[in-house]
């Protein structure tokens, strides 16, 4: 390393970054914690000179508030559904891609395509695919088109479902969101897992071949253990992303975070709750943000702990 005679130079080069980080990163960390512990804090009242008591009121309010519990439930449900499904599907696709030669590059390109999309815009395409044109909820429904997904279901002899329109059921909404989020999450996971597979030492497979180990055992005893650091990585980033889920839901359901005509925001998430309370109830928003951070932190630690025990390295 170079010993420059002018250490001030380094600070000069770093100064723009440091100034911006102090204002937009360090100060928010301190201020958010302070606001969270001031009971009922709001900037509007603070500017009128109101003093706030120190306490856990914001946390208590947030935890007891029904809207927040809905958000928490939706967030956890979507995480628990989408992370395992997308990880397993990505693993399967990556292993298959790794085992073929012709068309490998071509298919790999196709599987990466959803990554480079706008999650609101493509959410609107998914919404259009599941959308029923007509009135479904009325006693005598007038249907113009059931939408392409229902058409496919009906083609195979199934019953059409009201996925996202007025009067649709919660589980149908969650199903659509799960499909969309998994579709969206696949490219990154496939990219990482395929990269991992391609760097695995071929000797292990040759040894297995000499022993004529069955394919399934090769997969569970060689591929998965050797790939475990990559799997841990995509699971952890998947959970972090999952707990911050928001824009996929806006893409499909819009700002109302639910099917048209529904009361409240039945599909709101934790991040959605924080954004809703940002402009007036900053104390509660801060408390919710700290709770979110706590959950992400704990889940990441559990993941790291488990993967340390389970990973090969």
């Amino acid at each position: 390393m170079v010993n420059t005679k002018h250490p001030w130079k380094a600070w000069l080069y770093l100064s723009p970054a440091i100034v911006l980080l102090l204002i937009f990163t360090l100060w928010p960390i301190i201020n958010t914690v302070v606001m969270a512990f001031q009971e009922g804090y709001s900037i509007q009242q603070a500017s009128k000179g109101k003093e706030f008591e120190f306490g856990l009121d914001n946390f208590a309010y947030v935890i007891e508030y029904r809207g927040f519990l809905t958000c928490l439930k939706n967030t956890i449900l979507l995480c628990v559904l989408t992370v395992p499904i997308s990880t397993m599907l990505a693993l399967l696709i990556a292993v298959c891609l790794n085992s073929i030669k012709p068309l490998q590059k071509f298919l790999q390109t196709i599987f990466f395509l959803p990554y480079v999309t706008n999650s609101i815009a493509i959410g609107m395409v998914f919404a259009a695919m599941f959308n029923v044109v007509g009135t479904v909820s009325a006693k005598e429904p007038i249907i113009q088109t059931w939408g392409i997904i229902n058409n496919i279901i009906m083609f195979f002899g199934g019953e059409p479902v009201n996925w996202i329109n007025a009067g649709s059921e919660y589980w149908a909404n969650i199903f659509v969101l799960t499909v969309y989020i998994v579709w969206n999450a696949l490219p990154f996971k496939i990219l990482v897992l395929l990269g991992g597979l391609q760097s695995v030492n071929k000797q292990y497979y040759d040894a297995a071949k000499i022993d004529s180990t069955p394919k399934w055992r090769v997969f569970t005893k060689i591929t998965v253990p050797l790939l475990s650091p990559m799997i841990a990585y995509v699971v952890i980033t998947g959970f972090i992303g999952g707990f911050k889920e928001y824009s996929s839901i806006v893409g499909i359901f819009g700002e109302k975070m639910g099917p048209p005509g529904a009361m409240g925001k039945p599909l709101n998430t934790m991040v959605g709750y924080i954004y809703d309370s940002i402009s007036r109830q900053q104390g509660r928003a801060s408390a919710a943000a700290l709770i979110l951070f706590g959950i992400i932190f704990v889940v990441t630690m559990i993941n790291l702990y488990v993967s340390k025990k389970k990973t090969h390295y």
């Binding site: 924080i274 940002i278 943000a289 979110l292 951070f293």
Partner: peptide, 9 residues
């Protein structure tokens, strides 16, 4: 740290 924590402040 999740970005939402910064957003409020």
């Amino acid at each position: 740290i999740p970005g939402e924590l910064f957003t409020i402040t």
